[in-house]
Amino acid sequence: MPEKILEVQNLKVCYETGRGCVKAVDDVSLTIFEGEAFCLVGETGCGKSTLALSIPRLLPPNSRVLDGRILFKGKDLLRVDDSELQRIRGKEMAIVFQNPMTSLNPAYRVGYQVAEVPVTHLGMSWDKALTSAVNQLSKVGIPDAGIRARDYPHVYSGGMKQRSMIAMMTTCKPSLLIADEPTTALDVTIQAQILKLLHSLRVEYGLTLLLITHNFGIVAEVCDRVGVMYSGKIVEVGEVTEIFDNPLHPYTRGLIECVASRRGSKARLNQIPGSLPNPLNLPSGCRFHPRCPYTTYLCMKEEPTMTEATSNHSVACHNYKAVG
């Protein structure tokens, strides 16, 4: 059994709004093992980005972590002091964000922004760090990195910006890389390249990847294990082949069926009826029950808990036996 690298326990995060604190992540537990690629899938607004940002404590100021623990290599990130956290960020744990267009500082050359990381964490001299930044940039596929490192971000394309973000975040060879929808803002062709890049870095550095996405196609390509999130909760976790072949939660099943595939000439895209519930007014019992084709009386009354269906497949559904 590989070591646990990250363990999220009963995490609850909410956002302050005019109408009270809206829970975005509600009692989520999650374990990620060393070396694996874990995907977190779900619709926009289900809380997956909030979960991702809460791990390196980068949530916006209007958010509040109500409860829970985030154990990274045994240390509770929610309770370490600022200097410890600073040492972990960028060195042992790195994060790549959704929007590369705004994630680089417009006032500094790309090479400089990459070099800052080894200067801070490895005590490298600026000269050395700038050279290593050029190497890192060429490693992530920036052509003529020696010259392009001296460019400012605004002359880079979206794909190059995301590559630079990845370069910056991996110079210190972190053990965990969180990628929060790293390809959502990019062209489809660039998406594939970025995913390939993430995969090759994983192999080379042996890093653990936590990938956040809403795209089941990406899941199939990249991941070892999958967690499916719905309305602030994880509803199903399991190995990727297991999830695809034998989805146990009706929501997961719906998501997989949403991925376009041609079945004969009358191919029609499946969809899940309805939309995410309003977090201020959640349905009783199981949050998915108003949209679920398998709803029973129990679903309306009682919230299902995570149960282990097989040794590497858990699900939170009262009727998973009927679904699977």
Partner: peptide, 27 residues
């Protein structure tokens, strides 16, 4: 301070002073 690139600076693990002066104040 609410810009994405300042969040990037925090994510890189830069010291507080560097984030505030070099990345935020400069802009």
């Amino acid at each position: 301070l609410n810009e994405d690139y300042v969040r990037t600076a925090w994510a890189k693990g830069l010291p507080r002073r560097r984030v505030l002066v070099v990345h935020a104040l400069r802009n």
